[in-house]
């Protein structure tokens, strides 16, 4: 058996950082324009897949980027920056290719059905929304929102990963075991925090201009509690190595 109280007291800072990372991931999902199955048929604005798949894609890319940087440096700002940039690139690439498909493949202009004017470009939206759809494609505001989602998701994911690795670092730790365990815990925490906000928004959202975005405090509160529990068990398991 391991010394539970001792490990917790030593690592309480990391538990809090992991919890913060989880809340950031939860917030990030609200920025990502997810359209789900309707968007896949160009009948709703956003990327045509589910929240979890997108968040997982962006988060795992961030995790890989953060992990690669951690091979050469342990500096927290550098790891966070790498994770954030990795996730932002992943989101941007997904969205630009999606836009090509919608514009050149499906043949519909990117348009939002939730606002009359794009808050960023001030372009008129409602004229371009096809009848019977909830918008289609990725208008500028959704694209910018998605990149912001990548930023927060990547920050959160790499914060969780960095905290787990640092919490488990010890004189007699086998590095491959620690990296494996930290990655698995980070992925688990990421999935939990990707699903909670997706229940909050009911599966689809256009970005920060969507009325559903205002519900984010509920999901972030839920994620804080859920991640705190996950962080406790993760740090106990990792600290006991």
């Amino acid at each position: 058996m391991i010394d539970i109280a001792g490990i917790l007291i030593d690592n309480i800072l990391y538990v809090l950082l992991i919890t913060l990372g989880g809340a950031l991931i939860s917030l990030s999902v609200h920025f990502v324009p997810v359209g789900g199955a309707p968007a896949a048929m160009a009948q709703a604005t956003g990327i045509g897949t589910g929240t979890v798949q997108l968040a997982a894609g962006a988060g795992l890319t961030g995790l890989v980027a953060a992990g690669a940087v951690m091979q050469v440096s342990n500096s927290l700002p550098l790891v966070l920056a790498a994770g954030a940039v990795g996730a932002m690139i992943m989101m941007s690439v997904t969205m630009i290719v999606g836009t090509w498909v919608y514009v050149y493949g499906v043949g519909c202009p990117p348009a939002s059905a939730k606002v009359k004017y794009d808050p960023i470009t001030k372009d008129r939206q409602d004229l371009y929304v096809s009848q019977g759809t909830e918008g289609h494609g990725l208008p500028t505001v959704s694209y910018v929102s998605g990149v912001l989602g990548g930023l927060f998701g990547g920050l959160g994911g790499s914060l969780v990963y960095h905290s787990l690795i640092t919490a488990g670092m010890g004189p007699d730790v086998v590095m491959s075991n620690l990296i494996g365990l930290a990655s698995v815990f980070a992925v688990g925490i990421f999935f939990v925090n990707a699903v909670i906000p997706s229940y909050n928004i009911g599966g689809t959202i256009e970005g920060f201009h969507d009325p559903k975005f205002k519900k984010w405090p509920k999901a972030v509160f839920s994620s804080l509690i859920a991640t705190f529990m996950c962080a406790l068990v993760a740090v106990l398991a990792i600290g006991g190595l």
Partner: peptide
């Protein structure tokens, strides 16, 4: 409201 896969992923995440 968000598709069945989400719940499978949270199951394995937990």
């Amino acid at each position: 409201g968000t598709g069945v896969p989400s719940i499978g992923m949270i199951a394995l995440g937990m």
